[in-house]
């Protein structure tokens, strides 16, 4: 199974569209935290499209996704444990 040209083209168009949405969102000046969350959500969506269609993971066996991603996601989340320390550091600088 492979993605069709039509599918690839629509993914491409959607990615460009999402990018424009991201750029557009930069100008209403949302709060930094909200903006970051929205941007990251959009980015995760875009990556899912790239991974699913361009890297045709959607057309591979489910086992491959299960082997590759859960661990990676866990470790990325674990790395976020650094951030409370960064907040704290801001308080403790002198």
């Amino acid at each position: 199974m492979q993605p069709t040209v039509r599918q690839l083209a629509s993914v491409w168009a959607a990615l460009l569209g999402f990018t424009l949405v991201e750029v557009g969102l930069a100008y209403p000046h949302l709060s930094a935290a909200l903006f970051l969350i929205v941007l990251l959500a959009l980015s995760v969506g875009k990556s899912a499209m790239i991974i699913g269609f361009f890297m045709h993971l959607k057309f591979e066996r489910r086992a491959l996704s299960l082997a590759l991603f859960p661990l990676l996601i866990v470790f990325i989340l674990v790395l976020l444990a650094l951030l409370p320390d960064a907040e704290r550091l801001r308080e403790m600088r002198f």
Binding site: E22, V23, A26, F35, L36, S43
Partner: peptide, 12 residues
């Protein structure tokens, strides 16, 4: 797709 929003858009 992560660098663009985090580095550029967050620094508009």
């Amino acid at each position: 797709m992560f660098i663009f929003p985090m580095v550029y858009l967050m620094s508009v």
